[in-house]
Design a binder for these strands. Sequence first.
DNA 1: CAGTGGTCTAGACCACACT
DNA 2: GTGTGGTCTAGACCACTGC
Lengths: 261, 261
Amino acid sequence: MNNSSPQTDAPATAQEAPVVTPAFSPLYQQIKGLILQSLQSSEWKPGESIPSEMELAARYRVSQGTVRKAIDELANDHLLIRKQGKGTFVATHAEHQVQYRFLKLVPDQGDLNTEGPAQREIVDCKRLRASADIARALGLRPGDAVLQVRRVLSFAGVPTILEDLWLPGTPFKGLTAERLADYHGPMYALFETEFGVRMVRAEEKIRAVLPDKGQRDLLQLPVNTPLLSVERIAYTYNDTPMELRRGFYRTDTHHYHNALN
Amino acid sequence: MNNSSPQTDAPATAQEAPVVTPAFSPLYQQIKGLILQSLQSSEWKPGESIPSEMELAARYRVSQGTVRKAIDELANDHLLIRKQGKGTFVATHAEHQVQYRFLKLVPDQGDLNTEGPAQREIVDCKRLRASADIARALGLRPGDAVLQVRRVLSFAGVPTILEDLWLPGTPFKGLTAERLADYHGPMYALFETEFGVRMVRAEEKIRAVLPDKGQRDLLQLPVNTPLLSVERIAYTYNDTPMELRRGFYRTDTHHYHNALN
DNA sequence: CAGTGGTCTAGACCACACT
DNA sequence: GTGTGGTCTAGACCACTGC
């Protein structure tokens, strides 16, 4: 736990030794790493509280302030949630607060509350072998088993989002259209509780496209209606990609909202 | 500076007295507010260093740790930039690090470095009276003077972005097409140095649209090419809107990149 | 009331940049 | 070396929650 041999140290005899050895990791970063390990190994599960700052300080033999700084960063990354007077909890996609953390489509008038919950329809759900680009996105090899899901989300009865998504077959063994349809709540919450896969961050590439006939029909669109194409890769711990999602959003009544800070 | 009369206190005799008085503002938040005032009043200008933590602690009669926490938050908001060993500096849009902080369009292959800088062409720049929607967005009254700018950005010679932007007339008195064309560097950097207006955050509404003929010609597009419509409102201190920008992005060679945390 | 996170302080020491 | 921000500690007290 001291700095004489931090994890990031490179052996002095390494083949391609770096010119400088920037390796220095503060104690609180190391603590952060240890907490992260406990989260990954499900020692503390989503929704549960983790030990108090004092307990963790004793466990890791550091001061409370150091644990605090580690937790601060994890809370900032939305991996933990602090609740004054109650404790620190493992974040979960099931909470209403963060229900739509990754969905940035909002109605032009009103907000998600006035609009009410989305109606979901699973169009398709099947296992198949990963094509080259799917495999690359998910860090798999072409031909590996993946699960493909297609669904439509409607707001106030109007089909608004068409999504295709691909999941690696191994971690999601046993996921079926029925289980998806039966589950009421965010899809990422189901992934957490049923498969122990927690999505912690994502990246999106957004384009304007014209839908093909199949997409147009599913969304009941007139011809020449441009759609927002949103390609998302969602990551679990360790920057491991766990989902590729290609969404097509109607933007005549909704828009993609983004805050730039 | 004590909590007996924080800024957020509400008079007990207020007409619509809240049921609870949550008014409690930590010391470091008050310090943050004081630093913010100095930034607004240009006591410290963009690019300059602010006093050291010890000096500020003495000035505000608090401990260094309290000042540190205030600065931490301001650095997180990108209002200040900390440089170990050198000092803390007022953030500026002129630095290469944050040059394109608000532009999320990136090339499909390579990155901004391989692509090189954008070519800019000012198509139009004129003063006019604000329409109802422009006025609403900028917090003005319809008929107030505004500056309207239209420009095209090209990458590797290919027109890629068409932007219309509106600025409130008063703060930007003296801005002309010539000054815009002559200035080499980010537009927001010019706003800082020439008009003392620093943009600190922005919000964007993104849609997929089909361009009209005028837009199509300026971007030299074939018919039926959908574009990304990006409507941005940029704010300076105190959440004061200072710019409305309507951008149209080609997304056949580029995409809008967004990180979800 | 006890237990939790949140704030504030004071002091020591480390890493980095300049001179 | 000196001054800057960055880390770590230890202790005191405050605010919120639930018993």
